[in-house]
Simulated assay, not measured.
Amino acid sequence: MAQNDAKLILVGHVAGGFGVKGEVRITAYTADPLALTAYGPLLRADGSHALTVTGTRATKDGVVGRAKEIDTKEQADALRNLKLYVPRDRFPEPEEDEFYLADLVGLEARDSEGVVLGKVKAVQNFGADDMLEITPSAGGQTWYLPFTKEAAPELHIADGWLLAVRPTETGEREPD
């Protein structure tokens, strides 16, 4: 599989420079922020090289460390908000009955009759719970399915699909 075809997992973003010697602050989205150095080079969303993080130390919201590509605070600050990704195949395989949210992307969403409603485009979190963004098979705008046991009661990741129970839609409220 070509590097650009690999499924990428968002692991953090550059929060800016730290100090005056070119260290960089990275907000980590991983359980262990120091694991960022173990994943090898970090990539941009398009799969191109972003940073190679070297010596790091943990902070309350990520890591501070050196990157081979950064020599000055100004260079680090210029990369602020750069999202950092790692190919899925660099992660350890999950335990039985576990999965990475990125593994849901690309799965078919099927109803209880087996009709394909669409494909999972992304897993979003707007502050409450995870939501599956579904691209409809028939075209049109994407829609969201709460990623709960009620709305997605069955996951068949190895077979490429999940059972989707769409919530009952409600109409506009009647005026009082």
Rank of each mutant, 00 (worst) to 15 (best):
A28M: 10
G139Q: 13
G65C: 05
A58I: 10
L132P: 09
A28Q: 08
D159F: 01
N81R: 14
A45Y: 03
A152E: 14
R57K: 13
G160F: 04
K7Y: 01
A122T: 13
K60A: 13
M131P: 05
E96R: 08
Q3S: 00
R173T: 14
K83Y: 04
N81I: 04
P153I: 08
E172G: 05
Y39I: 03
A58K: 15
R173W: 11
A6K: 15
T30M: 13
T30F: 04
K149A: 00
A164Q: 12
V165D: 03
S112E: 14
D129F: 07
A152W: 13
I134S: 07
I134A: 11
F91M: 09
K21S: 08
E113M: 04
V24K: 03
V53L: 15
L84F: 09
V24T: 11
L36Y: 00
R25M: 02
P94T: 10
G127R: 04
A38L: 01
D129Y: 13
L82F: 06
I134P: 11
G106S: 08
L79M: 11
L8W: 09
R25P: 00
F91Y: 05
G118T: 07
A67E: 06
A122Q: 15
G16Y: 14
V63Q: 06
G127S: 06
M1N: 05
A122K: 14
D71V: 03
A128W: 08
G65E: 14
A151V: 06
L155P: 05
N4W: 01
V11A: 12
I9H: 04
V116Q: 12
L101Y: 15
S112L: 05
A158L: 07
Y85A: 02
A128F: 06
T72W: 10
P136K: 06
P87C: 14
G55H: 15
L107A: 06
D130T: 07
V11F: 06
G40T: 08
Y29M: 11
W161L: 06
Q124D: 10
N81W: 12
A151K: 12
A76G: 00
